[in-house]
Nucleic acid binder design. Structure first.
Length: 471
RNA sequence: GACCCGUUCGUCUAGUGGCCUAGGACUUCGGCCUUUCACGCCGGCAACACGGGUUCGACUCCCGUACGGGUCGCCA
């Protein structure tokens, strides 16, 4: 599910919750050619993971079912024919125009079937001639509707074409099914993306033709993505992971994603940014909705995710992070909760970063002797060599192999030699991790590595330093 | 191309005629802290698209221009 769709669902949910309303899930599957196996399950899973519980829907029932449009075709047919009877729609026998010519052809359907001889229409219908049902829109006058976000919008009817209501295969179009279902299901607020703004006048005409009250419209600003060249366009796959599933797979927390997208196009009107779903529902209001398109910023999502990660209780972080760890050794698996996760917890922004952060634990990476040069601690290969030569045996002799004990060994050593702690720590870090940056310090890493592996790595460093005495 | 909509720091936004020397957050850049990195803390850079009005006074109201976006499907 695209995050844009999720955000629309989220706002609809928040609006319903904040007003004591009902959140209805309706499946709009009227395009048989685009049916995708498993798509419905993705919708259910996304809604569940995002915490958006619907009050009515295909799986939970309700008074207005069925909630799957492909199961309501008889309803749409009846209503389309009612419109024909009222003179607001008509049968059209024109050939289907394929839409694959590149520059979109100017001007739509010309309405040529409006004035077909009724007897001929009846005969063609009886003969089973393929047809569609079109909405009849007068060329004269204007149509005005009010949107809660964009205000009053007026368009000339002549720019509206006779849109199709019922397709050749008997299925309704999205626009028609929506009007019928929204009315029949008692929908009060139509919350959707602003790309639907320009088709809304036709909705009003349909409601008028039926003699139904018009619902309230809440059109949302679009979510945009930034292109490599700096321009922006409707957020799509080319901009990265834009489906809820892929974001979760990369290690973003569902709560963080929901919080982030809530703020894309809506503002609580104050400086607050971190909200739980319930808090969002309490703060939500259409007055906070913006009109201008919003650019999806992965940097900010990343930051927000890190806030959620840090707020997790230690045990829960360990559990959620575990599947992302890429754990291959039984040893790491065994000490994950107690030793590894605590190191990662304050440093991880996105769970998917973990494998790269701890790869050095499973295997010492190749590293250049230059790593022992460190300005701030005044470390260099010669000093590192001397320090490691001292520290190796000292650690080896020490009975207890825990981070606090090892830390004390290094501290005592530094104190005895009048060294600042950072110097031996740096030499040790490079030796046991082979990396400039590690989650946690040398004592913590050494505890995880264990006595044998730690000493093996120190020996390896010593050998390397001996081979490059002047590096 | 036609129609509709939009335009405050790079990004998300606050601001509804004087409270604005335009606030917050992300990013970025400094500094502090520190056993690296990170976290945390402190601080800096950075915006009202432009031009006309209206008004004592405009980021806020009106008009135009520019730019951006959306729609123009027997897709949703």
């Amino acid at each position: 599910m695209h995050v844009g769709n999720l955000r629309t669902a989220l706002y609809a949910y928040l609006l319903a919750r904040s007003q004591g309303g009902t959140f209805v899930l309706r499946i709009e599957d009227t395009d048989q050619a685009r049916h995708i196996e498993g798509a419905l399950e993705v919708i259910y899973a996304t809604l569940r993971q995002a915490g958006l519980r619907h009050d009515e829907g295909p799986d939970v029932g309700g008074a207005c079912g069925p909630y799957v449009q492909s199961q309501r075709t008889a309803i749409y047919r009846t209503h389309a024919l009612e419109l024909v009877r009222r003179g607001a729609a008509y049968h059209c026998f024109c050939d289907k125009v394929e839409r694959d010519d590149d520059p979109a052809p100017a001007g739509g359907y010309d309405g040529r079937c409006r004035h077909l001889d009724p007897a001929a229409v009846a005969a063609d219908l009886a003969a089973g001639r393929p047809h569609v049902v079109r909405q009849k829109i007068d060329r004269e006058g204007v149509t005005t509707f009010t949107d809660l976000v964009f205000g009053e919008i007026t368009v000339e009817n002549k720019v509206l074409d006779d849109q199709i209501l019922l397709k050749r295969d008997g299925m309704p179009t999205y626009n028609f099914a929506n009007v019928v279902d929204d009315h029949l299901m008692g929908i009060t607020h139509v919350v959707r993306g602003s790309e639907y703004l320009s088709s809304t006048p036709k909705y009003n005409l349909l409601y008028q033709a039926f003699g139904w009250p018009v619902p309230l419209y809440v059109h949302l600003p679009l979510i945009m993505g930034k292109n490599p060249d700096g321009t922006v366009a409707k957020l799509s796959k080319r901009h990265g992971s834009v489906s809820f599933e892929s974001l979760l797979a990369e290690g973003y927390l569902p709560e963080a994603v929901v919080n982030y997208i809530a703020l894309l196009g809506w503002s609580p009107k104050n400086d607050r940014e971190l909200f739980t779903l319930d808090e969002l529902a309490a703060a939500f209001g259409v007055a906070g909705l913006n009109k201008a398109p919003a650019v999806f910023d992965f940097d900010k999502l990343r930051w927000m995710n890190s806030e959620y990660v840090k707020a997790l209780p230690p045990a829960e972080f360990a559990a959620r992070a575990r599947p992302f760890g890429g754990i291959t050794s039984p040893h790491l698996a065994a000490c994950w909760d107690r030793l590894v996760a605590p190191l990662l917890h304050p440093r991880v922004e996105v769970l998917g970063d973990i494998p790269e952060m701890i790869a050095f634990l499973a295997a010492l990476p190749d590293y250049p002797v230059e790593f022992f040069h460190h300005k701030k601690t005044k470390c260099d290969p010669a000093r590192a060599r001397a320090i490691l030569a001292d520290l190796g045996p000292l650690c080896h002799r020490h009975g207890e192999w825990t981070a606090p004990a090892l830390g004390a060994v290094v501290q005592d050593y530094a104190a005895a030699r009048g060294l600042k702690l950072g110097l031996p720590m740096w030499a040790l870090r490079i030796a046991v991790s082979g990396r400039l940056v590690t989650p946690g310090g040398p004592p913590e890493i050494m505890e995880i590595l264990g006595r044998d592996e730690s000493l093996r790595r120190i020996d390896h460093a010593l050998a390397m330093l001996a081979a490059h005495p002047t590096a």
